[in-house]
Design a protein around this nucleic acid. Sequence first.
DNA 1: ATGGGGCTGCTTTTT
DNA 2: GCAGCCCCAT
Length: 791
Amino acid sequence: MADDLRKQFNLVKKQLFDKLYSRLNEKQREAVYSVNGPLLVLAGAGSGKTTVLVNRIAHILSFGNLYGDDGAVNVDVELLAKAQSLLENGAATEIRAFLSVLAEDKPQPYELLCITFTNKAANEFKARLENILGENSKELWSGTFHSVCVRILRRHIELLGYNSDFTIYDTDDTKRIITDIYKELDLSEDALAPRTASNEISRAKESSMLPDEYEIYAGNDSRLNTVAKIYRRYQHSLKMANALDFDDIILLTLKLFDEYPEVLDKYRNRFKYISVDEYQDTNLTQNRLVLMLSSKHCNVCVVGDDDQSIYSFRGATVENILSFDKAFRNCRTIRLEQNYRSTQNILSAANAIIGNNTLRKGKNLWTDKGAGERILLKKQYTQSEEAGYIVSYIREQVMHNNAKYSDFAVLYRLNALSNALEIIFSKSRIPYRVFGGTRFYERKEIKDILAYLAVINNPSDNVRIKRILNVPKRGIGNTTSVAIYDLAEREGKSVYDVIKDAAFYPEIQKSASKLDGFCSLMAELRELSQTITPSELIKSVIERTKYRDMVLASDEPERAENLDELVSAAMMFEENAEDASLAAFLADIALVTDVDNYDTDANAVTLMTVHSSKGLEFPTVFLPAFEDGIFPSTQAIMSGSTAALEEERRLAYVAVTRAKEHLVISHTGTRLLYGQTTQNPLSRFVEEIPKNLVTIEQSVKTVYNNVSEAKRKYVSSQQSFIKNVTKTPAESKPAVEQFEVGARVDHFSFGKGTVKKLTPMGGDVLYEIEFDRADVGVKKLMGSFAKLRRS
DNA sequence: ATGGGGCTGCTTTTT
DNA sequence: GCAGCCCCAT
């Protein structure tokens, strides 16, 4: 009898929940209800992923385990009656209140961890939760992998021999260190590009390889051994400076957990529920971190879309999402395929494009919105025409169709493409905002002031001291600077300590008075920093170092405005942050990105890269420069690697799925990029869109350029990545056939051979070819001169 | 030590 | 096309 009652009640209870979440579809609800155990949500573009995540977290906090059959209470007739009446005619708030009271074992907000891809996503997340749950949801831990790890490291990093005032180095700092190491070890940049070395180190760190292990991995390979040497030095420099790079933030957190199980226990006990968004963009160490943190309660929900994995170049691996169900055998998988964003035509185009990828789980987006408009494919003669078309299209829609500027976005493959667009946009008086390019925190004057703050916060920060030692000019030149760094290395001291005792070292005695001046300035500021807020400190730094005077006297005095903007940024930070210390401010800005400042309210057209647009949506999207050689990029085409091309295709998929109603793809006859005029054929990805979804328009001028389908196909396959050196099409070089790695070729005098390697050079390609004839062997040949034929 | 002039090289994408 | 680098002259 009691059993019966319970069964009945459970049924009504579930119906109540369904009513509460009636705005969600069945799959979405299923995800919300799957509270316990590992959960993988494969969420297609625009499938309401964020809604699901937010609702799921809110659900966990409000109702804990209540949805499950064993999740409640003493059931009596009265309770059942109440539930039934609510089901009949209860308001959402009543149902919510009723269920909430029944729930036992509700977790506290601080027992939940939500990892998002950007800080902005994290903040939105919190805001939406607060809307549903009110103030106390603030305690929830949400942030990016990096911000969460920094928070953990701040508390425990002393166990690993670092000071908790550590500095976070960005790619620019990293580059400076690597450059210094090249000089120190007398390495040639031609043999191994610094950026390659730096990338290689980053990859090593992303797979938890420390210098010792990397050395073993390098084996006899001389190139890798050089990297190993650089890596070791690099890590040493960071340690000496009490600094962490982006990879270290994750890596050291893992190390902390590995070496101090009691610290790991603290956190894995604490986080009863973990969710991770954009899982397709996690790397190996991040994946390990998730597995470690969830190893106690195993309530881990990861959300992602393998088709939107676009960060493998920085170590993200789709493998994490593809093998999540192997890491957790009892994992439940839910697919969200209904799209709420785009029209069917746009989705069909996206599906058709992504369908050409082989390495995917497979998904098919659909909508009940109807076909909508066709995709517009526009060919222009020049890029200014292309930009002009976009501008006039927007103006037309705003003037006559009641559109807002913020309904439009222009998404491009390369930041370099934004220039031509910006020129036209700024002439047109259409409000627009550009994301990316030189970002606010990467401006020289901002980085200089931040360097002062970093050194105030962490005097061992050798890299940042170098940046400001003679900025503004105070008579400390290169010779002195080099001597100081040599001394610091020799004495095993920090650069700051050497400067402090300048009079003591004969090598730098001459400059001792100037160095003393620098030191007392820094000491004074450091003293100040104990008593005033970051924004006030910034003002003091700007004035006392005479930095503002320097900027005002320069040929770009308007840069002083940026200094004021930095002060405002700090004030904003102070208003919102729980911990408004200098260290916290520095950590915060080290981890923000441009997209974090993306303001959805501003009524302006958005210009950004496709990468930055992930997660956003716009009624109308323009995709200029959809050309082979740009999208997909030259390097992806030339590498001949399927994986690289498939990543480009995923990127195209992301681009197309940003559009809600109108999609305008365009390409041009000639394009000026990096100071060179290029002629690129239409992107191969456009060829993958079924013709019945597309309307093709050409500007009048380009009609003469129209060629037969067959010829265009030929050009597209043969000439795709040639950058023409000359300005006019008439003078351009004839197409030279290109070969991929592994291709069999025939040379008029060397005979047959196999392409082993290719390197882009100027508008040409350098091939390394292993010829069959033993007396010829391996030869390096330039593509345009070698007269190679496919054999 | 500083400032200017000419050069090269570099162009995915970013936490 | 341009920024940042190096080298040279002051």
